[in-house]
Write a protein that binds this DNA or RNA. Sequence first.
DNA 1: CTGAAAGCGCTAACAA
DNA 2: TTGTTAGCGCTTTCAG
Lengths: 343, 343
Amino acid sequence: MANIKEVAKKAGVSVATISRVLNHPESVSEEKRAHVEKIMKEMNYTPNAFARGLTLNRSKTIGLLVPSLTNPLYPEIARGVEKVAHEKGYSVVLCNTEGVVDKERSYIHMLLEKRMDGLILVSSELTNQEIKKLKENNIHCVLLGRDRKDLDQSTVFTDYQLGAYLATKHLLEIGYRSIAHIRSFEANEVGKEKTKGYLDALKEYGVIVNPDLMMEGDDEVEGGYIATKKLLSKGIPIEAIFASNDLMAIGAMDAIKRNHMSVPDDIGLVGFDDIGVASYVDPKLTTVSQPVHKMGLMAARLIFENLRDDHGVEADQPKIYLQPKLKVRKSCGQEDRLKEIFN
Amino acid sequence: MANIKEVAKKAGVSVATISRVLNHPESVSEEKRAHVEKIMKEMNYTPNAFARGLTLNRSKTIGLLVPSLTNPLYPEIARGVEKVAHEKGYSVVLCNTEGVVDKERSYIHMLLEKRMDGLILVSSELTNQEIKKLKENNIHCVLLGRDRKDLDQSTVFTDYQLGAYLATKHLLEIGYRSIAHIRSFEANEVGKEKTKGYLDALKEYGVIVNPDLMMEGDDEVEGGYIATKKLLSKGIPIEAIFASNDLMAIGAMDAIKRNHMSVPDDIGLVGFDDIGVASYVDPKLTTVSQPVHKMGLMAARLIFENLRDDHGVEADQPKIYLQPKLKVRKSCGQEDRLKEIFN
DNA sequence: CTGAAAGCGCTAACAA
DNA sequence: TTGTTAGCGCTTTCAG
């Protein structure tokens, strides 16, 4: 692969001139520029980003860490991020942490070596301490997911607790009382918030919490299926289920059907996320939506704004709040008793 | 961010020693190594991948180009690629070409500048010429998708024509004759192969092709929906539909239902891809499966094998063929008349 | 408008 | 086992 020196020699100019036609073409005489460009084409010259990065100390790439690629939520975020990154001439390194904090750490390390210009951490499981350290090391990073209130850190977030509250409350309003909850594993911070919202709503309606009605799942379809099977086998009457994500809700739906029961006639069901398929399962899934593609776009834009007006470490660290909204469809049942609360 | 020189000074050794503890720790005396490692920790030293890349001429990253992130097929491939890449200490740059060949080209350019160690092109729309040129420039790249028979190029592929043939044949065997086909846009090479397979089967069964039964769609749910609406509005009797991917099949299913008809009672339906949700829509979608996650794993492994025993340009260029398999579920209908042909 | 040369941070060959 | 040093390919000051 030809380098700048070879191009310079062939073009009969200095390397500085080559560099200029690349980066400041206006500062090179018309004819010289044309000539150089022709030679570059001829030699199939491709500038070396290592060398450029070394001098400029910029990689023109950002890192995107997501906890899963199985849940369509995250590819959707990735799509948003990729879109604005590409517009700005950046590329994005995709890191699937699988929700494993050590894999996340190892990725962070790798990304720091590669001198990412920015990092987008989706549902990160890092401690506040660690996030803070990133900032101290002057890494531009934005969090996407839940808010960390005590952290001055660019964030695009939803109120998961509120979302879960809305979902559960909706079930309560319809008249369900024995409402099960399929939640994420204990370690999952977002999951905890959702469980809080579930409990908030029960409390508000004076429903006594039954621990037997709460079951953990792995955030995948499979986990929802298994959890529901377990719930159903307990012999406790269950009128409705709030699953902490749509994938698990779909698994739950499957389990219920295979138990020869009907959603929503026998058991009402609400999910969380509003992934695309939620509208295509049968019955269509009532769920809480986050505008996930938009969140990806916004997170990326935050990164680039930070990069643009980088007044040292202390740029603004805006937080963007996006409202969770209940999407009432069929799976929660009893439509007739329901006035549409949210548009 | 501290650099190697600063670490060396503080540790009271030469930069070479630092480099050694990083890359050949066995060649450094026990005590010196421990000491250096301590200093590195203290200073929070993170090697600069630009500098390393510049000397070694390796980026330890591979590029992954996919035509879409909306279709769950591609995140699933990405998941496979990411998995093996991470195991090998590589990172992956995610490029969403949106099926637009110019975006693909622009990405290729960017990836060449960043000196990717390998490229995985999924359903690439580049010309054979262009692919060949990549190889000449000594870029390790593997194609994933359809085979290009006249190209000596690492490939992981499925026989789309065969898959489509199997799908259509199945519908014919069940007894359908008026079989519509929702195909991809003309420009899409994979789509063309599928259409061929559809026509093959019709021909074999002596069914006269009716151009009015073929309709283009954009490969998304929406496209399938629209195409089906158009088909239904033509007033031609349609007994079954073969959609060239599952997303469009799901759109078709929706359109059929909204037309107050039933799948499969009124219209049988077969898709292509076997994306996860195919098992969760109602009725469950009969479709042709590709082992897509595995394809991602294999493509990545091919890259790394090529990298490992890189005998210059002329390494082996193996092609891996994966068989498409018909998954018979509910949407094709008339199960009773059906013996399970494929396991 | 153009060229010479320093320097970005690292690795590896060579010498000791 | 360790240190010295020559690059790797580029950008950018500084001179002209």
